[in-house]
Design a protein around this nucleic acid. Structure first.
Lengths: 142, 142
DNA sequence: ATAGGTCCTCTAGCGACTAGAGGTTCAAGA
DNA sequence: TCTTGAACCTCTAGTCGCTAGAGGACCTAT
C-alpha cells in the first residue's frame, strides 16, 4: 500500500492534484490508515496512471471520466471510446491550425520589424491596425 | 461617442469583457453619460481594437498591458515590444510542437483500434499502459 | 405612457489545478 | 523512549480570461 506521496511519485501526479481528483469524484475515496492518511493499492495506482496519461494527451477531465466508465466495463463495444479519442484528435488538430496561423502572423510581424523607435515599430503598428494583418477575425480560442 | 454595446459591435469584443478590461485596469475608466452609462471616443475604440487584436494573437493580458504601455510612448526603443512578440512566438511554437506530438499519439492509437469490445480496445489499452506509448512524460501543459 | 432593449453593479462559476494556513501523524535517528 | 522534521490532513482562496445571472436603472420609439 502506498501513501499519497509515494503514489504521486510513482505516477508523476502532484499530491494536491490527487486529492483534487478524489474531491471531484474522478478517483474513488481512498482507504485510510489508522491515523486518517490515504492509502492506495495497485488498482488505484493503475487508475491514476490512466488518468495521467489521458491528461498528457490533452483529454479534458470529463472525457476521462467517460473513458474510465468504459474501461470499467470490458464487454461494452469500444466504439464509444474511439469516438472520444477522435473528438480529442479533432480538437488537437483545430488548435494546431489556429496556432499555426498565429505563428505565421507573429513571424510576419517580426520580420518587418525595424527595431528603432516605438513610433516606427511594426509590432505595435500591426497590433493597432487590423488592415495590416492577414486574417480578419479568428474568432475561436487558442 | 459610442455606447458600450456599439463599441462591442465595432470591435468584436463582448460587453462584459469590455467592463472586465476596465475593471482590471487594461482600459481606463470610461467617461459616463448623465445617466451613468459608459461612453467611448475614437481613442478608446483604438485601444480596445489593439487589445482585441493582441488577444487574437494569443498574447496574455499582462503582455498586452506592457505593449500598451510601450505604445503610449512613441520615443521609446522598439526592442522591448519586439521581445514581447518574440516571447509570444516562442510560446506558440512550443504549443504547436506539443500538440503535434499529441496528434501523432492519438492517430497511432486510433489506427490500431479494432473497434470490438472494450476489453480489446486499443484506446483504453494505450491509456492504461504507458509502455505502449511513444513519449514518456511530456511534462508541460497543452 | 409604456414597452422592451440596453445599460448598471454585484456575485459566482468555468477548467484544472496551485498555494497557503494551521494543525496532525509518522518514521528515523539520538 | 523521545524528538525532530518530513509528510500528511482539511479548508479556503487564488490563478487566467472571461461568462452567466440576479436585480434593477435608463433610454428610445411608438
Amino acid at each position: 500500500m502506498l501513501s499519497i506521496g509515494s503514489l504521486g511519485k510513482a505516477t508523476g501526479v502532484k499530491v494536491p492534484t490527487i486529492r483534487y481528483y478524489e474531491q471531484i469524484g474522478l478517483l474513488p475515496p481512498a482507504q485510510r490508515s489508522e491515523g486518517n492518511q490515504r492509502l492506495y493499492d495497485a488498482r488505484a495506482r493503475e487508475r491514476l496512471a490512466f488518468i495521467r496519461h489521458a491528461r498528457d494527451l490533452g483529454f479534458p477531465l470529463e472525457a476521462i471520466r467517460e473513458l474510465l466508465g468504459l474501461a470499467d466495463d470490458p464487454d461494452q463495444p469500444c466504439a464509444a471510446a474511439d469516438a472520444i479519442a477522435r473528438r480529442q484528435l479533432a480538437t488537437v488538430k483545430a488548435r494546431i491550425a489556429r496556432l499555426q496561423a498565429l505563428q505565421a502572423e507573429l513571424e510576419r510581424m517580426l520580420a518587418h520589424s525595424a527595431c528603432g523607435r516605438i513610433g516606427d515599430c511594426r509590432v505595435i503598428e500591426v497590433l493597432g491596425n487590423h488592415q495590416l494583418c492577414l486574417h480578419d477575425h479568428p474568432a475561436e480560442a487558442e
